[in-house]
Design a protein around this nucleic acid. Structure first.
Lengths: 197, 197
DNA sequence: ATAGCTTCTTATCATACATCAATGCACAGA
DNA sequence: TCTGTGCATTGATGTATGATAAGAAGCTAT
């Protein structure tokens, strides 16, 4: 398998032999996936952690009223998976879909377990990923609890300026927890402010 | 140290010798803390994971406008900590305060690292805690994105019926992301519905 | 270029929730 | 028993955001 990004990622985060890393990557499969195709659908069992080599994916849920809620965006060099499903072996509540033609490395959940037990450093690395994830989620909860639509949007721009340009506003809105119309208004307001200055 | 709950908790979750568990617990300190006292304040470094033996704690933030936002409640048999601060060694953004006179076991962060490296099963246990945490946070985000005040309250009742009775409504409101007044109205509405039936 | 998507904007109206202010309780301390 | 203090409730009013609908602006494919 040809996998430059993941290899670079692991090399800079894991203090083990280049050779060993290659062997790890060797036992993963790379998957090409076209825009709009799914890596995971609701009620399926998530069996992998996906590392995005290139392209852009989105994880989202659909509620009873049929509305989409974006859980996360995953561009190059990000991991995306439903840990709840993968770890606890439950049917997933989420969809993972490609927003652009993408390539991902599918890392088997069991494989991660094995590596964690064999390589202490890898266990530590995995631990770090989990903590990062938690930090991220907590920050988002805090934001949803405390900030207005405009504030949330501003923070989004700040954190993901690159993603902003690659996804339709509808999806940004569903990430922020507002309607596309509201987002449009917020944007208008902000544009005006800049203009007047 | 006398620590019935933590010991029971570990025994039922860790497949190691009773003796070893005792020795683990032996090297932790128990802390008595009175209502309204703090285990952690904003900008302090969180150095421990706290296991609640009895009592009830709350983790919350205060935003620029001075409003409190409850991140979590922690009753008996729960862990509470700011992982972001403890793991990444950053000043915390949160407060952890006792809502009732409580007893907690303070587990040193480094100690956890050591145990994880020595005892594979403990590493697995810790991993499970992290995944549980993630599952929890994700569910909450999904709820904040998709549900109305009333729906969020109903779900809260469902998930934490015990906590509901032990904390002032102001704090429940700040957990749900609404004002105390709104919560009062939601409750009134629900009460009426039941009554009319 | 045209037709047919999808996305974004704009406008109007509706509504959930916030804000502000007053009142009512309950409980704790003198 | 009285009184102060903290919550919960209620009402009046304001505001941000949602719902709906329609038009404008890009893309894509024929």
């Amino acid at each position: 398998m040809q996998s430059s990004h993941l290899k670079a990622y692991l090399t800079s985060n894991l203090d083990i032999e280049e050779k060993e890393i290659s062997s790890i990557i060797g036992s993963c499969t790379i998957k090409k996936i076209r825009k709009d195709e799914f890596l995971l659908r609701k009620n399926e069992y998530c069996k992998h952690t996906f590392f995005v080599e290139n392209g852009l994916l989105r994880q989202y849920s659909i509620d009873e009223k049929g509305k989409e809620h974006t859980i996360s965006f995953a561009p190059e060099n990000w991991f995306v998976t439903d840990r709840e499903s993968a770890y606890f072996n439950q049917p997933s509540a989420y969809y993972i879909q490609a927003l652009e033609d993408s390539e991902v490395v599918a890392i088997d959940e069991n494989f991660i377990h094995q590596l964690s037990e064999k390589i202490p450093d890898f266990a530590g690395f995995n631990n770090k990923l989990l903590h990062n994830h938690i930090r991220h989620l907590q920050k988002r909860i805090n934001l949803l609890l405390s900030a207005s639509a405009k504030e949330r949007y501003l923070q989004f721009i700040d954190m993901y300026p690159d993603i902003l340009l690659r996804v339709p506003q509808t999806m940004v809105a569903s990430y922020l927890g507002i309607t596309p119309e509201s987002l449009s208004r917020v944007r208008k307001e902000l544009a005006h402010k800049h203009f007047k200055k």
